[in-house]
């Protein structure tokens, strides 16, 4: 589990990685949010750029997936 207190997007390389991955999203896709909104690729990139709570959680989701992928495919 990731450290929830850490600010992932303070790390410029993480921010660039997340924004790069976001750039490949299909234009029609929307991420459903708890307040009823559904965020576009451009809106998500803005949140990541601003390093706000939504951007930070999106980065956490991406890094969690990448770390679990490494665990699945790379032997210890």
């Amino acid at each position: 589990m990731l450290d929830e207190s850490a600010k992932l997007l303070d790390d410029k390389s993480v921010k660039l990685l997340v924004m790069e991955r976001l750039s490949f999203l299909p234009s029609g896709a929307r991420l459903v949010m708890e307040n009823g909104e559904a965020l576009t690729k451009e809106q998500l990139i803005d949140h990541v750029k601003k390093s706000d709570e939504t951007g930070e959680e999106y980065a956490e989701m991406e890094l969690l997936y990448l770390r679990n992928t490494v665990k699945r495919y790379v032997p210890k």
Partner: peptide
């Protein structure tokens, strides 16, 4: 934590067909 899923608004008339 948050339950996450994606949608494509062009399928809101038939959500069950939305591949996202």
């Amino acid at each position: 934590r948050r339950f996450r899923f994606w949608i494509n608004p062009s399928f809101t008339h038939s959500p069950q067909d939305d591949p996202c």
